[in-house]
């Protein structure tokens, strides 16, 4: 059976640390490496930070829902994460996910959040509806043997280096 958790938290900065550590703790059952765990924490932190900084224009009822599922295979497993807010929505998702794009440059924001989620996880997608909110879905394979393509890419990198 797939294991599953659902967390609902207030969209407040002080919950950023809790959110990423809770997801990392849940992922531990898949026996991830330290690097995999670190990737998960970083990606979750980016998604949750977006909800806190960008999603809500009003103070009341700001919330984030985090749902995670782990699936175990004979060799390793998979972690699925869904992070949802019920805020203003993103007008142009394609533009928002471009590296260095930010609507708030004055806060020393890098505009790299979505790029990091994309790079650190194996699958990533954003769904957003104006006035209704945004959902980020991410998937990461944990502890799986590398595929033939990945082995080839590694070998190529090694030769180039």
């Amino acid at each position: 059976m797939k294991n599953y958790i659902k967390l609902e938290l207030a969209a407040l900065g002080e919950n950023e640390g809790f959110a990423r550590n809770a997801v990392a703790a849940f992922a531990l059952s898949l026996n991830p490496s330290l690097n995999e765990l670190s990737d998960i924490k970083t990606a979750v932190s980016e998604a949750v930070t977006n909800c806190i900084v960008h999603a809500y224009s009003h103070e009341k009822g700001k919330k984030i829902v985090i749902e995670c599922e782990v699936e175990r295979f004979d060799e390793g497993g998979e972690l699925h994460i869904r992070i949802t807010d019920f805020g203003v929505g993103i007008e142009d998702v394609e533009r928002a996910t471009m590296p260095f794009f930010t609507t708030l440059p004055e806060g020393e924001r890098s505009g790299m959040g979505f790029t990091i989620m994309q790079t650190f996880m194996d699958d990533f997608c954003v769904e957003s509806k104006m006035g209704e909110g945004t959902t980020v879905r991410m998937r990461k394979r944990i502890g799986c043997l590398p595929t033939q393509e990945e082995l080839k890419a590694c070998e190529k990198e090694r030769v180039n280096a």
Binding site: G17, R20, K41, T42, S45, E46, T49, G107, E108, R109, S110, M112, G113, I116
Partner: peptide
């Protein structure tokens, strides 16, 4: 012990 993209903005600043 932990850093996300906030670190990029922090260092550039």
């Amino acid at each position: 012990s932990f850093m996300d993209s906030t670190g990029i903005g922090f260092l550039i600043g």
